[in-house]
Design a protein around this nucleic acid. Structure first.
Length: 600
RNA sequence: GCCCCCAUAGCUCAGCCGGAUAGAGCACAGGAUUCCUAAUCCUGGGGUCGCAGGUUCGAAUCCUGCUGGGGGCACCA
């Protein structure tokens, strides 16, 4: 039985996470609380959804749960009285992990970990290769970036590329086999136009100098010319038909345009550190389209309407739940929808993925609702998620080729690096322990690209972004540089500690004196939850926020707690915190595709 | 016309499958370095969480309506 869903509501992106993949501390605490609830109220019919969360900074406890309030109604008793019962049972069975259980406010159970318990969970964290994140299995396909052949990559491509790459890294980190697939636009109408334009107006020298720029010029020129003379459109269609029929000349041109464009894409990807496992463009699927439509028709999933082949979505009353999805035009040509359906089917057959994630802008939301609904009709039960993000705009309005205000991705990256270099050089001039020229060469792209990526990734993806160089490349505040600086600090501490002969920290013992230390440690334990949440929600910004919080806590700890001047157990404990912070920062930044320098 | 998304501090945003006193950054005002990198830290002012109802022990968070902004809706991708 499929649960009723409101008209037009997309499928939920966050299914319930099974208990078993909670990070260690939370798994233990929830287990304890649940067991205490059972012990205190054996007659309880239904177990409530027990959630243990970190207490807010100003509250004295480490963790808290509102379970007593949730039980007030079924038990028909006062929350505080229920909390008493649970607290009693908790105290009786968890002295090793929980030091104190208090009842606060309307009936919250406030839990504070014992020193032994903290030492225990810390040791687990240190021993965990994934820093407490769960292990996930199966193959996941991520479809991202997807630029069009013959067009320059501009800042509008940045978000899909950066978010998709971060998701690819996060999924891989969590244990999935991830297939990053660049579904480039290398087929369709524009090729007939390009071939026509190439044959009539090409400038061979310009092409030799910058193929993509020349193709873009031809593309624009064709559109200007065809607006005045409709015969050009027929001519372009004829070239397209020849191409699709396998005409060797047009086929060779098409391959040339595609390959030369790919080189330009690769330059940008290399600079960004973005990798794909596959680049199966639309052309790869074109021979699968006719059989697909035949199949849809044969199975009664598609029907002819106003000359076109459509998939309709109707509920049991015959009401349309979504607008129709066109899979074939009346002239017989196939559409974006057709290719995407063929792609889903191909991916299912080749990889049998547990999940497929599409990263595109919000304008495609309806398309993906229709696509996923059709896939379901076809019997494809893979989890399909559309991770969508807001549009990139200029303060004065949207980007547009016609307005000539499109900013090439390359230009943005150059600008980022140049600004980072300028800051580095200015700082270096007034620093005692100066960086070498080689170090600056290495740091400028790390910092410049980090700033650009972080500006994008730290925003909730589903909001529009107003593109401003100054904001995007700001080098203070909640930015990548702040995180990178934190990383450099942990390395500096480590270097000096090693030079002074301090033993390598192993998370043993834990010796917490200042509240800043406890706060940092508890936050470190949340790494796995943050990464897993980011993955489930399709939202790398969760990792970015976690890291920012981590860096802030580390700096407070650093300002308050001397490390190298501390002695014995206290120093060992602080060095462990330092080391674990470094691991979490390095791993977390890597998940965002940002490098963590050892010195800056 | 129908559908979807958004509205939180002067600005940019976080928090949103309900949980205590709504948090950051920027900007503004002030302070901290005999001590591990001051790209840091601390303090301060700043809020009818768009408006009005509703559900609930509890609403920025869920529901309904309204206002304003953005996006989409048959042969583009």
């Amino acid at each position: 039985m499929i649960p009723a869903r409101r008209r037009g509501t997309p499928p939920p992106l966050r299914p319930e996470a099974p208990m078993s993949i909670l990070p260690p501390v939370y798994a233990r605490l929830t287990d304890h609380v649940a067991a205490a609830v059972r012990a205190a109220f054996p007659d309880l019919e239904a177990m409530p959804d027990v959630q243990v969360v970190r207490s807010k900074p100003d509250f004295p406890s480490d963790y808290q749960t509102a379970v007593a309030m949730q039980l007030a109604k079924p038990l028909r008793r006062a929350p505080r009285q229920i909390a008493e019962g649970i607290a009693e049972a908790l105290r009786a069975r968890t002295a090793d992990l929980i030091a104190t259980v208090d009842i606060t406010g309307p009936g919250f159970l406030a839990l504070t970990l014992s020193d032994a318990g903290l030492a225990d969970v810390l040791a687990e964290q240190v021993a965990s290769p994934r820093l407490g994140a769960p292990t996930l299995e199966g193959t996941v396909v991520i479809d991202f970036s997807s630029p069009n052949v013959a067009k320059q990559m501009h800042v509008g491509h940045l978000r899909s590329t950066i978010i998709g790459d971060a998701l690819r890294r996060i999924g891989t980190f969590l244990g999935h086999t991830v297939v990053g697939d660049n579904h480039i636009g290398d087929w369709g109408t524009q090729f007939g136009q390009l071939i026509y334009a190439w044959n009539h107006w090409r400038d061979d020298d310009a092409y030799a100098a910058d193929p993509v720029a020349e193709l873009e010029r031809l593309y624009v020129k064709f559109h200007q010319a065809s607006a005045l003379d409709d015969a050009l459109n027929d001519a372009a269609r004829a070239e397209l038909a020849k191409l699709q029929a396998g005409d060797p000349t047009n086929r060779a041109l098409w391959a040339k345009f595609r390959d030369d464009s790919q080189h330009a894409f690769d330059e940008v990807y290399d600079r960004l550190g973005v990798r794909f496992d596959e680049t199966l463009g639309e052309s790869f699927y074109h021979e699968m389209l006719a059989p697909l439509v035949d199949d849809l028709t044969a199975r009664g999933l598609a029907e002819r309407s106003e000359g076109a082949m459509c998939v309709f979505f109707r509920d049991e009353n015959g009401e349309e739940t979504l607008p129709p999805f066109l899979v074939q035009k009346k002239d017989g040509a196939f559409l974006y929808a057709t290719t995407d359906l063929a792609t889903i089917r191909y991916r299912k057959e080749r990889w049998d993925p547990v999940r497929v994630i599409y990263v595109t802008d919000l304008r495609q939301r309806l398309h993906f609702q229709q696509l996923f609904a059709t896939a379901a009709k076809m019997g494809i039960d893979t989890r399909l998620d559309h991770v969508w993000f807001g549009l990139m705009k200029l303060p004065e309005g949207s980007f547009s080729t016609r307005k000539g205000n499109v900013i090439a991705l390359k230009t943005l990256l150059d600008e980022g690096e140049a600004r980072a270099r300028a800051v580095l050089e200015a700082r270096n001039a007034e620093q005692d322990d100066a960086l070498s020229a080689e170090e600056i060469d290495a740091l400028a792209p790390m910092i410049g690209l980090g700033a650009i990526k972080y500006a994008d990734l730290s925003n909730h993806p589903q909001t529009d972004v107003v593109f401003e160089f100054d904001k995007m490349l700001a080098l203070n505040g909640d930015t990548a540089v702040y995180l990178q600086y934190t990383s450099a600090r942990t390395h500096a501490v480590q270097r000096k500690a090693e030079a002074a002969g301090a033993p390598t920290p192993d998370g043993h013992p834990v010796h917490l004196e200042a509240p800043e230390e406890r706060d940092l440690l508890l936050h470190l334990l949340d790494f796995g939850a943050a990464v897993h949440g980011a993955w489930e929600n399709g939202r790398p910004s969760d990792v970015a926020h976690y890291l920012y919080q981590l860096a802030t806590r580390y700096h407070r700890f650093y300002a308050k707690c001397p490390i190298l001047k501390a002695e014995g157990a206290l120093q060992a404990s602080r060095l462990s915190l330092n080391a674990l912070t470094q691991r979490a920062l390095t791993a977390g930044l890597d998940l965002l595709g940002i490098e963590a320098p050892m010195r800056m």
